[in-house]
Design a protein around this nucleic acid. Structure first.
Lengths: 342, 342
DNA sequence: CTTGCTTTTGCAATCGATTGCGGTAGCGTT
DNA sequence: AACGCTACCGCAATCGATTGCAAAAGCAAG
């Protein structure tokens, strides 16, 4: 009834007039304790407002019922986890994880000095890890995966990769987007994104392949480094416009970059899709709502998150789950002209 | 060097040829150990890839270096934390918390049965709690606050509230928004939101006061229940439109609701802001990007999050921090016609 | 070589649960 | 009544760190 002092299992044992062992087993629904007694003890514990101390439990059981979700920000100094894509991914992951009765621990990594991943792993704060985005930490991930199994990465599938990853077919997605632009008669297609990031570099590969297949020579002046934040992307687009380089389409490697580019174009008095077609990547919620609505390569995050967590739990159970690739879908809207469905 | 077996403090002690006590103190930078020896032990530990087991540490120290962030979803069956407002708040809170060297544990509460908050508190998984949104749990919060101090709530300031809360002046914000609409000559202003939620009910209070001050009689037919999700809000707006009730403005209690309303109006062939002025609440990032750009009551989330965490840490230190109220700002854009700054 | 003081060090208890294993109670047979 | 068998129960060790307290070591002065 009264619940001022945080009461321990021993207190419940006293109340129920049994030993701690029995209480522990009863609360764990261990059939070693007869059913009616189990219920009785559970009732007493609940009534007393008793809750198992998770720190003690974690120590003894060597598991925490917690999954760590890590956002390596090594490549970007901006601290805030603000990108809508990451945010949505996080929400979906959280859903999948909590549904399975686990807690979600957010690990925002800013200090990617030697051994950062090992420090997280060895802290034993979580039973498994999801790493969202490889950032520039491919090597560190490869190394950690050698000895730590319950780890799944969202990102591109790279050469010589030993860790388990889930991600969209970046090359294929990009290829499809650029093919679509080419199909509309566009020939001078700018590429906006940070080639240093593995996923982006794969998208670049798709871009190059599409151009090559169409027999179009690629122009380095059309490849523009652009970070993920709206402001920096806007700046990058503005510079492209002011450089005087001719272009009639933009393949942006994220929707945020695409939206920033559209705004920059509008500010420069250029019509989208009249003069310039724009395609984004991710198909975040705003994409459909923007003006004009954005054509984008859709990543199925719901499925992605589910796959990640499925694989993670398999690995936590000792099974050896392989990487998975999701198929992207081009969602055609007004931002690139034309009207065919993709 | 080799780091296959998860090594413990005892192992490091052996390596450094000292006792565990000394290692523990050295790693904690305890001045009881001479500086040079401290450094030496730290070096040895780091080289061996040793990391303190947090479960054990938490148990012994009775603190976890973790803050729980709770989203009570009692009022809404939709599981996903998808509302951009909550998402942004979460990101900012995470920033503030990690900056202070604490971890963030996400608690998505779906089971708000008797004692849910107590179960979280007594689990001892965290050293402090941030509750984002009161949902319909005012009573539970009030009760918990009696015995549990390190707890801060984002939400409205209610009568008879004993817990510490941080929130925007909802009444004032709503008042300003509606006054603005009235100033534009609008007289039939619809209110879209869930009155069951404390914050929304405060905004309703502001709405009522504004109307009363302007000598306009309020019409119950103009008060429409609308959830936070885009789809349900769209539906609510559509029903308002189809009901035939006359109206020339909408005060939406969130930007998502406002955006949904604008789409519904557009679908019905009604011009915004020509026929109907729309004002939202929160001023989320998309608000400025929508068509037409949305007038909205801005909540300063960066400041809000900082205030919440500041207060929480004060409370964790045993001080008694009082509730705080933030001043909202009306950001005027095209969605309500007119051009004056608010 | 003592003595007295300061600086370091380590023993052992502790945090609050879980669980292997040995012991007891209860019941049915002979 | 004695025995055997199951079904329950609880003792005590354990998880891996932290820390009060006492002991040891170092050092200077007498």
């Amino acid at each position: 009834m009264a619940e001022d002092g945080p009461l321990k299992m021993a207190d419940v044992a006293r109340l129920a007039k049994v030993s701690m062992s029995t209480v522990s087993r009863a609360l764990a629904d261990n059939p070693l304790i007869p059913e009616d007694r189990r219920r009785e003890i559970q009732r007493i514990a609940a009534e007393a407002g008793y809750v198992i101390n998770q720190s003690a439990r974690s120590l003894r059981m060597r598991k925490t019922q917690t999954i760590g979700v890590v956002f390596p920000l090594g490549h970007d100094v901006g601290q805030l986890i603000s990108d809508p894509f990451f945010i949505e991914m996080f929400g979906r992951l959280a859903d999948e994880i909590t549904t399975r009765g686990y807690q979600v621990l957010l690990c925002r990594v800013t200090d990617t000095s030697e051994g950062w991943l090992n420090r997280i792993i060895q802290s034993h704060r979580q039973d498994g890890l999801v790493i969202v985005g490889q950032s520039d930490q491919h090597e560190a991930l490869n190394q950690a995966a050698g000895s730590y199994h319950p780890l799944v990465v969202w990102g591109g599938h790279l050469n010589g990769q030993t860790y388990c990853s889930v991600g969209t077919d970046n090359i294929g997605g990009a290829r499809r987007a650029v093919d679509h632009l080419l199909g509309l008669g566009r020939k001078r297609i700018a590429f906006l994104g940070m080639l240093e990031l593995p996923e982006i570099s794969l998208r670049y590969e798709g871009y190059v392949r599409a151009l090559r297949a169409a027999g179009i020579e690629q122009d380095p002046a059309l490849v523009i480094p652009a970070h993920f934040s709206f402001e920096t992307a806007y700046e990058a687009a503005r510079e492209l416009i002011e450089s005087g380089t001719e272009f009639d389409a933009i393949f942006a490697t994220s929707d945020i970059i695409a939206l920033a580019a559209i705004q920059a174009l509008a500010a420069a008095g250029m019509d989208v899709p009249g003069q310039v077609s724009v395609v984004g990547f991710d198909d975040i919620a705003i994409a459909a709502q923007s003006t004009p609505p954005l054509t984008s390569v859709q990543q199925d995050l719901a499925k992605g998150a589910k796959t990640i967590v499925d694989l993670l739990f398999k690995r936590m159970a000792g099974e050896d789950a392989p990487s998975a690739t999701l198929l992207p879908k081009l969602v055609v809207r007004k931002s690139c002209g034309g009207t065919s469905a993709g």
